[in-house]
Design a protein around this nucleic acid. Structure first.
Lengths: 330, 330
DNA sequence: TTGAAAGCGGTACCAA
DNA sequence: TTGGTACCGCTTTCAA
């Protein structure tokens, strides 16, 4: 029996006589034979695998990964994970994976393309971005409207009666940061509330920065009665710090997060936050990329809705001004 | 100039005259040429990539991944992520990746080998396990001593004066569950405290099960004054439920977690827990596997120490019995 | 329906 | 130090 026959039994069984096919398969089973994917990929010119590039390994991105993996698996694609860790060099290495033939396309969660792939230099690999539109590029994007989500969350606070509403913003590098800030401003403006630069603290998405942010905001002459945080982590950090300062959430101050991580519902108190359909974001991204790889036309932009989830970290403002009480011993 | 020369310029530059090498490299740079990794892997017989297999995408495993990635990168290995999701079939598919030539070896975090690779069937790929020893196999393992860690945590509660100490155990499928339970028992026995099956709740590592567990334990005739949880997530769930029931931690009941996730220090209250050196576990695993792949001898077992981190979720028992108070409105 | 053989893009051996 | 070339394992065209 020739190698061609074995190859056909595995790849295009319909071309073989049933008897031949069975004979091959039984031997394959017995030997535990698995075709060499490198050779196959080399010959076929593609590997049926896609690379998802994240800027870090936070649970937020990993859930998008999980969604993408689900769709990829169904379509018989392998999903690889590339962690750029914010390093442009590593990001470029991820893109090179496609040039090197290890993957057929990229799902990009970092919001930026390596400079080596700037327009006019190397051509982009098959690409879909998630969360962030690529400026000046016509690359399909699956995203949510951060601005609308942030505005809705801010409006929730306004409707509760808050007037002094602060914002702890995310990392400057993330384009979503600007959009969430814009939504916060939109809501304040439509309510006729004054914007104050003092009420905006530049965080970096870490719990630590959330804690630092709220401490800083509290030191203001006119401290806020509510804070919209750029993500859940910073909200957790903020709440923790408030408790540490002897302040209770939401009694003394209301806190809103962004993302609705799994932990949000189980935090103490459960966090009011903006739900982002991470899983679906991943699913759609994988679907679009696979369509693209298979030569079909794809949507240029998909916008998935966010949703405000009201839990127990928000309430009407207290009568008296929130002031740091005795700092807890520990 | 021949292809052989280009190949050498990229793979073994020391074999070329400096001038030739520079000439090749300048053209490589200009063209953005990247060697095809499939062809290279096919020819060389290895890919310099290793696959890390996790049972799910929880932050716990991802931190081990991050540690392994660090070492892999330094050694110029790519680290792939395989998510078996508890499915034996997917687990087997991960092992097949090595047989298919996509990876050279496996770092296994699931604690079990697919049945297709049972002793006497297919030979195991180059393998290092993390956290769990493989029964009946001489596979290198990098682990911590869960039993000692759990005993230390339990002793901490005993020293605080607790006598009724419960345990919310992890998933039955994880071997660590049994070890942590054993450590809990060890400490109780050495302190001369009675063991009661009622005080052991079978959880599954989720926050939800932690919440259900503590609710159940509280309904006991003689409810516990402290609970050792099999991981941090269950501890968070437990604390949340307690607050929901109008009970405060640690005033009414003490809670200890296991793992020391990032969130532990920022939970409300900050969680007393057992630190597991996840990052180092990953680093060591990658290092051992790479050594093994390069034909060197490797340690058969590496045991890394755990460490009890005392924060604010534990305190001496209250005088009066903890009883569920008014259930909070929300 | 099956077999023979070319070729995917590199690497490494041998020769020059 | 460089070039020519066989070969890694598979797919696919062409011929039988």
């Amino acid at each position: 029996m020739s190698v061609a026959t074995v190859s056909r039994a595995l790849s295009r069984p319909e071309l073989l006589r049933e008897e031949t096919r069975d004979r091959v398969m039984s031997i394959v089973d017995r030997l535990g034979y698995r075709p060499n994917l490198l050779a196959r990929g080399l010959r076929r010119g593609h590997t049926r695998s896609i690379l998802l590039v994240v800027p870090n390994l936070s649970p937020f991105f990993l859930e998008i990964f999980a969604g993408a993996e689900e769709v990829a698996r169904q379509a018989d694609f392998a999903l690889l994970l590339g962690n750029s860790n914010g390093d442009p060099e590593r990001e470029e290495a991820c893109f090179d994976q496609v040039v090197s033939g290890r993957a057929d396309g990229i799902i990009l969660l970092t919001g930026l393309v390596p400079t080596a792939y700037a327009p006019g230099k190397r051509p982009l690999p098959p690409l879909v971005t998630v969360l962030e539109r690529l400026p000046g590029r016509s690359v399909p994007v699956i995203r949510t409207d951060h601005r609308v989500g942030a505005a809705e969350a801010t409006r929730h606070l306004i409707e509760l009666g808050h007037r002094q509403i602060a914002h702890i913003a995310g990392s400057k590098h993330a384009p979503s940061t600007a959009h969430r800030l814009a939504g916060y401003r939109d809501a304040l403006e439509s309510a006729g509330l004054a914007l104050s630069q003092d009420l905006i603290y530049p965080g970096d998405f870490t719990m630590k920065s959330g804690a630092a942010g709220v401490e800083r905001l509290l030191s203001l002459g006119e401290p806020p009665t509510a804070v919209l945080c750029g993500n859940d982590e910073m909200a957790f950090g903020a709440i923790r710090m408030l408790h540490n300062l002897g302040l209770a959430v939401p009694r003394d101050i209301s806190i809103v997060g962004f993302d609705d991580q799994n932990m949000a519902a189980f935090y103490n108190p459960p966090l009011t936050t903006v739900y982002i359909p991470r899983h679906e974001l991943g699913r759609r991204a994988a679907r679009e990329l696979i369509e693209q790889l298979e030569g079909r036309d794809v949507a240029h932009e998909v916008i998935l809705p966010t949703r405000l989830i009201v839990r127990e970290s928000t309430a009407p403002p207290a009568r008296r001004k929130p002031r740091a009480g005795r700092r807890r011993s520990a």
